[in-house]
Every structure is written in C-alpha cells, then in structure tokens.
Nucleic acid binder design. Structure first.
Lengths: 190, 190
DNA sequence: TCAAAAGTGTGATCCGGATCACACTTTTTC
DNA sequence: GAAAAAGTGTGATCCGGATCACACTTTTGA
C-alpha cells in the first residue's frame, strides 16, 4: 500500500487520515503470467493500478487476430473503460505478460472517493487528462506516420518494453504484421 | 450563456449563484468559416466549447498532408490538449467549417473552477471520461477495421456530419485517400 | 531435461489502397 | 452572374505491406 500512497502523492499531497480513508477502497491481487484480468464478454467490475509486472490489453477480431490497445507496467492504470464506466460487457482482453501485483478499484469505489474527496476527484481528473493527451497523440501517429516512424516513436516512448516484450506484440501495437516489423529494424539497424 | 448552463446541467445540477460564479470564466467569440482558432506553432491559450457551427482539428505532416483528428459541432469541446495542458506550442490546427459561436476558457480558468468548485471538477472529470472512452474506441477502429467498416462506423457516429461535410475530410478522418473512399460507397450503395 | 510451444528472420507472391491524371459538377466570391 | 476555387467520380498504374511458407532459435513447463 506504500506504493499506492506514493503514486497518489505524485499528483496531490494527502495526510495520513486522508490516506486511511482512501486505502480500504483498494483490494490487492496477485496475478501470474498468462492470467486474464478481463476477457471479452466479462462484466468489468474493476479497474487496476499496476504495482509490478506487465500487461497487454487487446481487441480480438472475428478472425481471431489480436490488436493491442496498450501495454501497461508499474504505475499504470488499466481497464476496458468503455465497459467499466458504461456498465457494458467487455470487448477487450487484459492479460498478464509478467507476474504482477495490482490494486483493484470498483467504479463505485472510484465515484465514492471522488464524491467524498475533492482531492481524489482532482487526482482522477489529472490522470485522465494525461491519458487523454496520450491517446490523442497515438491517433495522430496511427493516421500520419509510417510503420517505420511508429516503430521509432514506440522505442522512445517505451524503451524498457522494447527489450522485454516479444516483437510480435509490438507489431500488433503498431498495426503492422510481424514480418514487416522484422524487416523494418533489420534495415534501419545498418 | 443559457446554452452553457444547459450544457453543464446535463451533467451536474447547479444553483443560480453557482452559475454566476462560473460564467465570468468564459468569454464569447464569433468565428467565421475558414477562420483558424489555433494554428500549429501558436501558443494555446484557450479551449473552446462550441455553441454552434462546425470545426475540424487536423495535423499537418511535412508534405502538407492533412490528417483529421476530430470534428466538433454543438456542445463539443475542442483544443490541442497537449499544447493547452502541457504549455507547449500547438502541433494541431483548428479551423471553422461553418460559421460558429464558441465560448473560450483558459487553462487557468479551468483549474480555478475545478479547485474552487468540487462540482465543476466533477463536471470536467465526467467530460474527460467520455472523451477518453471515445478515443480508445477510435484507436481500436483504426487498428482493426477496414476502411469499409470505418466508413460505416463513421456514418453511425456522425449521421449529421455525413451529409454536410465534404467527403474529402471524411477520408482524412478515416485515414484513406479521397479516391478510395469514393469507391467504397459507390460499391456498397448497390 | 527434453519435448512442445513460442518467438524470429527471410524469401516469394499477392493485393488493397495510394497516387497520378483528367473530366465534370457544385459552390464561393467579388 | 461569371470566373475561380473547391469538391467529386473514375480509370490506369504502382507499391508498401499482408500473407504464405519454412527454417531456425529460444523459452517454457511437466
């Protein structure tokens, strides 16, 4: 729970009492590689704050092809937010890629925290603001950049993931085939 | 200003006094077709709530090609949020496509409103939440759907724009060439 | 520890959509 | 209301990246 406090205090200052109020809304969970946090069709009860480990969130089309919406590591939040916020069934899948620990928060918890604590509402707004900007950049990148450029941008954005994630998932994130990605960097390396 | 109040009250209930507090943070502005609200390189002072009219926001690549990030009509908010929030120069352009009226809000205004009024912070958080979900859907669509499908999805999402916006801008939004888009619906219409 | 599964590089082929080119129509604008 | 500008449809050609196929390497897990 110490990590949670640090995570929150990166945005807002909170007292011991305030933190004691916040704490009980989160539940701790251990997750093993290959384990699903959410599978399409599920009811999405929680969003997750990742304490350690790595996850990928992806959409599965009718042909069974994966499209990665995002990766998430330490200090990232993740959920199928459409399902979570709008109370729909999940259309996205979230899978653990490296043994992990997460904190779980229900929508009710999130809204209660926000309603009871102006500071926490500010915290969530600040997080969303960052997320919104990041998604907007990704859209621009998908529309306007070549696979080559997107690969380089990815390297800048996630230098650590670049190493430890199988290349085929990076390809799925970039929206190119595994083979094309392989050729990209075997050429640009020269 | 009546529209502003309605817009806010779609999310939260506010009293007359509260609205009197909110009002002065917004300034009214009339915008004519072809007029830029923001041009790349500008300092982004305001975000805009659109009262009437239509805008497009686009990214311009080195070859001068346009890529449309979003359209916005009545009751939409828009800004180059990366520039607005992070105090950077604009990389996006916002142009009026149909004579319009907007309300302008500075970042300082937004943050003051949020800090002074828990309700308004809640309002902004709710708006961001919706925006975040919409962007996430768009990314999935760009990654996984064919131009054909994206065109149909666009029709469902913006039935009104479908009619009044030149097709070439729809193409730029979908990430296909004008010609390809033209062939898409001349085929599917049969 | 060793078989199965997952990940990776690379050639050959194919195809969807970009690009170029041009004629025609509609809307602006002075 | 006429000239200019913007928007549109359609053919011909081209090319980037998908797909298929296969060999090789690394990781995983009973």
């Amino acid at each position: 729970m110490d990590k949670l406090r640090k995570h929150i205090e990166a945005i807002i200052a909170i007292s011991d009492e305030e933190f004691e109020f916040v704490k009980p809304f989160f539940t701790y969970k251990r997750v093993k590689k290959h384990q699903y946090l959410t599978q399409e069709g599920d009811t999405v009860t929680f969003e997750y704050l990742i304490l350690s480990g790595v996850f990928r969130m992806f959409y599965l089309d009718n042909d069974g092809k994966e499209y990665i919406v995002q990766f998430a590591g330490e200090n990232w939040w993740m959920a199928d937010y459409q399902a979570y916020f709008k109370d729909k069934k999940a259309t996205l899948n979230i899978v653990c890629m490296e043994d992990a620990e997460v904190l779980c928060l229900t929508l009710h918890g999130r809204e209660t925290l926000s309603a009871e604590s102006h500071k926490m509402e500010h915290f969530f707004r600040a997080k969303l603001t960052n997320g919104y900007v990041a998604l907007q950049r990704r859209i621009i990148s998908l529309l306007s950049s070549s696979p080559q450029q997107r690969y380089e941008e990815f390297g800048l954005l996630y230098p650590h993931l670049m190493q430890k994630i199988p290349k085929k998932y990076i390809a799925e994130y970039l929206g190119v085939s595994r083979e094309t990605l392989s050729r990209l960097y075997s050429n640009s390396k020269v």
